[in-house]
């Protein structure tokens, strides 16, 4: 699936998107897999209460299932308007 990062999450991880092969069944499991990869991921995901997640472009929670998900995005709380 495609994993995307925005704003400071993108800056900390150092890339805007990547294709990830995963067996994670929930967003939280995917986060654990990413954190185990490298320090920059561990840093970016150190406090998930400071993050928001969208699965297939819909805002959701970290408990959300990933079955059939094509695109997961992580970002800080939004500051539009």
């Amino acid at each position: 699936m495609d994993v995307m990062y925005f704003a400071w999450v993108r800056e900390r991880i150092g890339l805007p998107r990547e294709t990830v092969e995963t067996t994670a069944t929930t967003v939280a499991e995917l986060v654990e897999e990413l954190k185990a990869r490298e320090e920059r991921y561990a840093m970016a995901f150190s406090d998930i209460s400071a993050l928001r997640v969208a699965v297939d472009q819909e805002l959701t929670d970290f408990d959300a299932p990933l079955a059939r998900a094509r695109e997961v995005a992580f970002f800080p709380p939004m500051t539009g308007g």
């Binding site: 925005f6 805002l59 970002f75 939004m78 500051t79 539009g80 308007g81």
Partner: peptide, 9 residues
């Protein structure tokens, strides 16, 4: 729009 549209400043 302020907190639910995906924009970051």
């Amino acid at each position: 729009l302020k907190s639910r549209a995906p924009f970051w400043k």
